[in-house]
Write a protein that binds this DNA or RNA. Structure first.
Lengths: 161, 161
DNA sequence: CGTGAAAGTTTGATTGT
DNA sequence: ACAATCAAACTTTCACG
């Protein structure tokens, strides 16, 4: 399975992608005005980003606390046995669970950082039990309850020139 | 500044919000078919989510590694002095920096969990220096380099029934 | 909530640089 | 190879039932 060739991006691409990462709800006309292009030129570029898999999807971002009571936590996890198969199984479980918002495999004494979203403190405890306590291949985990969300998003910094 | 009243959501709202959180690029017609409503009924609900601030924005999600070389890291941070003003200043700096993707204030010995996105290892080091090493109110910080992104997103679990 | 007409947006063929 | 223009197709919007 060959890697896709790295698409080369000019300054306008960087500008467009930055706009779309922060607000994908603009019209082609609006975007065109901001980057100095016609709507159809903008459209062709965006179509290319999608074809290349550069833009994977568009999502609506919700305000957690308007949806109802919300408890966020970041959990640090270290596995016991570290075979490829153990890692694969853990990752699959994280991906399948709706309460796991994000999961990163990291370097150092901790193996994973997990961001967990729950609807109550009790729900958070039960998620931790289900995902980590019940897994007998987890050597150790630590739950860092979130007091305040200073910043969220999935935006990436622009490519270095 | 009074808190907005909690909007009550029925089953269809939960369904719609779940669809929109994962793919906001559907037509009202399409969404309507999936939840069993007419396009205009769907539109009225979505307009309400926006008015209520439940949907804060729509964003395009990029594939980090197609944009170019990407280095992610999660950084654990503990401040030295912990006055309200020190926390406010730190938070403002995190919000203002394009390389800080997420930042949470957490309970326990660590004060903050920060997700950092960089374009190279060198860039990551420089971001760490700039954001944490150069701040003389930071007692201690630890950088956990991300080997692999198992799951990303900002989706929240549905409200408990 | 659904219908349908009006307004706005996206799409794609065509032409030009 | 990429951009602009314009008309057709589709989507969203909104007043009314």
């Amino acid at each position: 399975m060959p890697e896709a060739p790295p698409p080369r991006l000019d300054e306008i691409d960087a500008l467009l992608l930055d706009l779309l990462q922060h607000d994908a709800d603009r019209t082609l006309h609006d975007l065109g005005e901001r980057v100095g292009l016609s709507p159809s030129a903008v459209q062709r570029r965006i179509a290319r980003y999608r074809r290349d898999g550069l833009i994977t999807r568009q999502v609506a971002v919700l305000d957690p606390h308007r949806l109802g009571p919300t408890v966020l936590a970041t959990v640090l996890v270290t596995l016991d046995q570290e075979s490829f198969e153990h890692h694969r199984a853990f990752a699959a479980r994280m991906r399948a669970d709706a309460q796991v918002q994000q999961c990163y495999r990291v370097a150092g004494p901790w193996d994973y950082v997990v961001v967990l979203a729950s609807r109550s403190m009790r729900d958070c405890g039960r998620a931790g039990d289900r995902l980590f306590k019940a897994d007998d291949n987890i050597r150790r985990y630590e739950t860092l309850l979130v007091f305040d969300t200073v910043k969220t998003g999935l935006a990436l910094p622009p490519p270095l020139p």
